[in-house]
């Protein structure tokens, strides 16, 4: 029962984050909201496992955490450098100057 209450809270937060992801004026707002959606998905997974008395799903939660961060960082890296695998690239530097 108590997990049901917590799940309701997480669902409400999920809905609010989706609202921000849809409304967000800049892409960063959307990214922040999607990061929050990912966290909510992890908490939902864990709480749902406890609600149905099968908390063994948590391994997948760990995967989600890592994926969430990789996704966010990939997009952010793209934003800052315009590329993901930008290491030393003389041609591109020429183009930027």
């Amino acid at each position: 029962m108590m997990f049901a209450v917590a799940i309701l809270a997480v669902l409400a937060a999920l809905a609010l984050a989706v609202v921000r992801a849809l409304a967000g004026p800049t892409a960063f707002d959307r990214l922040l909201a999607v990061n929050s959606i990912g966290t909510s998905a992890i908490m939902l997974l864990a709480l749902f496992g406890f609600l149905t008395d099968r908390p063994e799903f948590l391994d997948i939660g760990i995967t989600y955490v890592l994926l969430n961060m990789i996704g966010t960082l990939a997009v952010l890296k793209f934003f800052r450098y315009g590329a993901l695998g930008h290491a030393q690239d003389p041609e591109r530097d020429e183009a930027l100057r």
């Binding site: 917590a6 809270a9 609010l16 921000r20 929050s36 909510s40």
Partner: peptide, 12 residues
């Protein structure tokens, strides 16, 4: 759950 919802409200 309370703090979780508070954060989401603040997000909006």
């Amino acid at each position: 759950g309370f703090f979780y919802v508070i954060g989401a409200v603040g997000l909006n």
